[in-house]
């Protein structure tokens, strides 16, 4: 009997404290552009990680192209079993390095905004608003950093392979397999798309804990902190 009333009153209050997505996006955009230096550092970690990953994937596909060319010319099978293991190892390492970098910069970017978080909570922000704002920012920076990283990584490798194999063969690498995971062959273009998505996911994942911890702080404690 009481639960119905509780339910109604609770929903009423939920309705009355809101942060529309459009406004959250606008606030995130302002945050990224006004603090451009900080945003660039945060994005740089993911940029470098994904650039390296994209370069590794591209060179694996380009190696395939080169091997096929060699096979046609001298009829020798040049496929290298060790290449695949090395590609996976390098890819994993580059992601690990990027993750460490981005966790660190997310931690910094949340910590230096404790006071702002405390203020927002005084103005009525729910914990979930704080988390939402930081995750949006991390997601946007992650995707942006990954896309630029992918462009830089594949761009550099395209130039390198074009020098070695000529432009048409270098560009044909995009359709070649870059990675084989348990019998599933991933062509280069798909590998790059996946790399960009991974960059965004990693970035959001890295922001999750610092943002959640900051949102949970009592406003008084958040306001006390000086930066």
């Amino acid at each position: 009997m009481t639960s119905v009333l509780d339910e109604v009153s609770k929903r009423g209050i939920e309705k009355q404290i809101v942060l529309p997505w459009s406004r959250a996006l606008q606030m995130t955009r302002e945050n990224i552009f006004v603090r451009l230096g900080r945003s660039a550092i945060t994005a740089l970690g993911i940029f470098l990680g994904i650039a390296f990953l994209a370069a590794v994937l591209f060179s694996a596909a380009a190696a395939q192209v080169a091997a096929e060319k060699q096979m046609r010319e001298i009829g020798v099978d040049a496929a290298d079993a060790q290449t695949q293991a090395r590609v996976i190892w390098l890819a994993a390492m580059s992601l690990l390095v990027a993750t460490v970098g981005i966790v660190n910069s997310m931690l910094m970017s949340v910590t230096e905004r404790y006071k702002e978080i405390g203020t927002m909570k005084c103005l009525g922000a729910l914990d979930s608003f704080i988390v939402r704002l930081f995750l949006l920012e991390a997601g946007l920076l992650g995707i942006l950093g990954s896309m630029l990283g992918a462009i830089a990584g594949t761009g550099v490798m395209t130039l390198v392979s074009a020098h070695r194999l000529g432009w048409s063969l270098a560009l044909s690498s995009w359709g070649k397999p870059a990675l084989e995971l348990g019998g599933w062959t991933v062509p280069l273009w798909l590998g790059i798309v996946i790399a960009i998505v991974i960059g965004g996911v990693l970035s959001v994942g890295a922001a999750l804990y610092p943002a959640w911890r900051a949102a949970k702080m009592p406003p008084a404690a958040a306001l006390r902190s000086e930066f």
Binding site: E14, I17, M27, K115, C122, G124, D127, P219
Partner: peptide
């Protein structure tokens, strides 16, 4: 937590020594 946020939002206005405006 939600009712408390509601209270802070609608019933109380806060002013601080250090102003605490959102800088951006």
């Amino acid at each position: 937590a939600q009712e408390l946020a509601f209270l802070r939002c609608r019933k109380i206005g806060y002013i601080f020594q250090t102003f605490n405006l959102i800088p951006v």
